[in-house]
């Protein structure tokens, strides 16, 4: 590999992505970082306030509520989605009649714009007019405040997120399964490994990178959940069900506190990156890949 790795060649291969990324991602983040150090209402002139916005986050009860909600959604959805979507990918890899069509259909929710996902589910989860409570009422179960109450909203958001992401995660696992060398799989089957043993001792170890990819994508996506909450409850009642980004959106655009909103955005970015990096560190410590 050394033969093709001259310095100009490396530069040539990296430069396009690096320039595009730096110009349209890094520079804007830096720009917003500068705004996070100001008091700026969006229309007037920004006023330098140093770290005031960051200090304000510490005492902002709505921010902490949003953080707790996001953490709940993160834990619930990872616990269900990682095993669930992997199992589904294994299942759809079997020779089941119409598995191609099934895959396309399971992927369906991932195609729907998040704002519509929220709209669909508000008609299912609304405590008064929603399908779910109507169905439960038919069974004699009293109405449950799935959304808009005091406690259940983050769990309901997690369920909706799981619904909308399972096809996404499944597709990545499925692509991962397709790249496994067939000889290894055949060899282990010939060795008499049962389905479960094969999955546990051959498939999962070989797909470690895929698991890392799916986990990181899901973590960063949970940290970006916005439209779901915005449509389901508007963050209410009184910001009780906000997630990090929905609250940042409220502060930045509804409240027009651009400076403070950007400070929140910076913190959200850092938190998302830290959780992902933490996961990477944990998973690489478990077993060093070859």
């Amino acid at each position: 590999m050394n033969w093709i790795s001259s310095r100009p060649k490396i530069l040539l291969m990296l430069a396009p992505a690096f320039i595009l990324f730096t110009l349209f991602m890094t520079y804007p983040v830096g720009y917003s970082l500068a705004f996070s150090l100001t008091k700026f209402q969006g229309f007037g002139t920004p006023r330098w306030t140093g770290l005031d916005n960051y200090a304000r986050i510490l005492t902002d009860q709505f921010f902490w509520q949003a953080l707790v909600n996001t953490a709940i959604i993160l834990v619930v959805s990872l616990a269900v989605l990682i095993p669930g979507s992997f199992a589904l990918a294994l299942l759809l890899q079997r020779k089941i009649a119409g598995s191609g069509a099934l895959k396309a259909l399971v992927f369906g929710p991932a195609i729907i714009a998040p704002i519509l996902v929220g709209l669909i589910w508000v008609f299912i989860l609304d405590p008064k007019i929603g399908l779910l409570n109507r169905a439960l009422a038919g069974l004699g179960v009293p109405a449950v405040t799935w959304i808009g109450g005091n406690t259940l909203t983050p769990y309901s958001v997690a369920i909706v997120f799981i619904w909308s992401s399972i096809g996404f995660a499944m597709t990545i696992f499925y692509a991962g399964l397709q790249t496994l060398p067939s000889d290894v799989m055949e060899a282990s089957a010939l060795d008499g490994a049962t389905g479960w043993q094969q999955v546990r001792h051959v498939t999962i170890p070989m797909l470690r990178a895929t698991f890392a990819i799916v986990t990181i994508l899901l973590i960063t996506n949970v940290f970006k959940i916005f439209e779901l909450v915005y449509v389901l409850t508007g963050g209410g009642p009184v910001h009780r069900s906000e997630t990090l980004v929905s609250y940042m959106y409220y502060v930045t655009f509804t409240n027009q506190q651009y400076g403070y909103g950007m400070a929140l955005a910076v913190i959200i970015t850092v938190l998302g990156a830290l959780v992902s990096a933490g996961y990477l560190m944990l998973s690489s410590r478990k077993g060093d890949r070859r």
Binding site: Q41, N150, G236, P237, V238, H239, R240, Y250, T254, N255, Q256, Q257
Partner: peptide, 21 residues
């Protein structure tokens, strides 16, 4: 009042209506 104060007014009123505050 500013947008932020206006939003706080809305929240305060709905907060009582929704029995949150």
């Amino acid at each position: 009042v500013s947008t932020q104060v206006a939003n706080a007014m809305y929240d305060s009123i709905y907060g009582v209506i929704q029995n949150q505050l």
